[in-house]
Amino acid sequence: MRAALAIVEKELLELRRSPLLIASMLSLPAAVVAVPLLLLAYLARAAPDQAVDFLRELYQMPESSSRVAALAAVLARQWLPLFLVLPIFLPILIAAQSIGGERERHTLEPLLATPVSTLSIVAGKSVAAVAPSLLITWLSALVFCGGVDLIVWPSLHRPLLPDFSWLFGTLVLCPLLALFGNATAVVVSARVLDPRAAQNIAAMTVVPLLGLLVVQLAGRVSLSAHFYGAFALLAALADVLLVALAVKLFDRDALLTRWR
């Protein structure tokens, strides 16, 4: 356990001293938060009636609700899947380097020459990738929810977010998806020598979720609480399988002697 803690501390110290990596980790969440808030602020103040009518029709917004509140509710519902992309994508930026990066820096052999167990290495590196990613995701969600509430407050006089879906999404689904993203990256980087290739391959796992977002934005489906519940169960199952696979693949001998 002490060894795993040492790995976490070292990884976080390295992250703190990598301003470019931090910037790349912050850029996507910043866009995910800023774009919908600016859009909502614009729609609330200056959107032509035709545009609002189109949105009302597309997303079946209730006629009775105020224009701003209805737009915000639709936006909040549609935008949640994109926030679920963050906890998958962000750990990949760190974790894909976890083995390939060690190999590239020639630190893998000194690391494996220590008595630290495979489980401690995987656990330490996973916590160090998941923790900052979750922190950034939660902070982004907080800013987004606060921003939406600020915009709707004058017409609604109460906060709109977080609702149940957002609480479930950020507090239950995000950690499960962060583990999924991290474990995928560890598994891929244990098999792929080039850390950049590992990062790209692991990042492909967000594609289905992005597809879901696009389908929902197109008004084809509306993701319900049941959907998110089933999604959480699936993510938990995938996590267990992937973590087991990551520990199995993190074989000292194979990591040192495989060359392709």
Partner: peptide
């Protein structure tokens, strides 16, 4: 093979801790 962003002392501390 060292972690370039860490100092010499920090590198030794890290590997020392991995050795228990």
């Amino acid at each position: 093979g060292f972690y370039d962003r860490l100092t010499a002392r920090e590198n030794l501390r890290y590997f020392g801790r991995l050795h228990g």
